[in-house]
Design a protein around this nucleic acid. Structure first.
Lengths: 200, 200
DNA sequence: CTACCTTTGTGAAGAATTTCACAAGCTCAA
DNA sequence: TTGAGCTTGTGAAATTCTTCACAAAGGTAG
């Protein structure tokens, strides 16, 4: 999140940013900003703040955004499309090397810059391409099976949009996003509203 | 999350579920399950577990899913489409009453069951329809402005997909989802991997 | 009815996270 | 060079969240 706003500031030519300013931008507190950043090192200059450009570069490095990551997208539906089209995606070094689906009507169809491939080839392709990240935009029922397949092929991180719990070996990172659950959280907040403000 | 899995169990006809079982399904611990549920009341039977059907109903009530929520989607791009098409959406009582965009090429076009409307009408429509939830699937630059408009019109909760921090009055709930940030989190995990397992 | 098994609900302990508050460091102006 | 004015980095305090562990309660078999 800090990176997101530091890049903005950098683009605008701002040279330094104090923890106060970053806190305001990110919706947190100055103390939190300082604690977070201090975890990775001592980047700031007392009396002045943090050097925007340097810190931006350092955070990119820490996050591993200096290299290119090969990504496969599984599921050629709307969510998959949204992700593949997402500008900030390639910009950040995430290179989509393949889109897969099991629907015969979709296989072979052009899809953005790529062509939808048969999910039967997924495992082989991941292995050949040495892709490390998989995005799952498929129905819940198929999720665990696909996970096992891509893990076997060498995938090391999974971003899961299927609204279900999936399990991965300890050496694979997993992050799940569940849109229905987000909305239900809002429903709860509205139902039990006593002037509650949601978190960002 | 508990609701998600309790519904599954209910469908399969299971009558009761112990905290142990729920924990396993949700990827947490039995103690956590019991603490979480006890916050809202005492639902279980000692020696037996939680009554699946009853608890399901109670959770729906707590989450405010018994009523219908009117939702407007702002931004007729891929993400907006993914959301509008999402089955679990209507199923959960979220009724999309309008889709808006500011692109003249899109306005008036059919879009699923609806027709894309002019964002200029958004404020008026929200007020007339008494919609309470807005989903923002628009570029960052437009986000804050749209927020102010819909809040003025009576929106009480916002699900934001724009990769930017937005601010809302204290009586409005806000939840942001940032796909780029999720991926960057995975990049970090991979870069600093020491057998790190990501959270669900 | 009793003895035993299971599982909840919950105080208390423990861990993690956030906030506080201030010494130390840097800049700038004169 | 000195002093005033900011701002960081960080121990300590406060708060929040998670786990432990066990009494109490329901179920079941005989």
């Amino acid at each position: 999140m800090y990176l997101r706003y530091l890049e903005d500031l950098d683009t605008r030519g701002q040279k330094t940013a104090a923890s106060d300013e970053l806190a305001q931008l990110c919706g947190t507190t100055p103390a939190q900003v300082r604690k977070d950043l201090s975890f990775f090192g001592s980047f700031g200059k007392r009396g002045l703040g943090y050097p925007v450009h340097e810190l931006t570069a350092r955070l990119r490095e820490i996050l591993g955004l200096e290299r290119e990551w090969k990504v496969v997208i599984v599921g050629a539906g709307k969510i998959g499309a949204a992700l593949a089209n997402y500008r900030g995606f390639k910009q950040r070094g995430f290179h989509v090397v393949g889109v897969y689906d099991n629907n015969p009507d979709k296989i072979g169809q052009p899809w953005g810059e790529a062509i939808v491939r048969d999910i039967a080839d997924l495992e082989r392709d991941v292995e050949r391409e040495q892709a490390l990240i998989a995005v799952l935009a498929i129905p819940s029922d198929d999720a665990q099976q696909v996970v096992e397949s891509v893990v076997r092929a060498g995938i090391r991180a999974i971003l899961n949009f299927a609204p279900t719990q999936i399990s991965v070996p300890p050496n694979v990172s997993l992050k799940s996003v569940n849109m229905a659950m987000e909305l239900e959280g809002l429903s709860f907040a509205l139902t039990n509203a006593a002037g509650s403000k949601g978190a960002a």
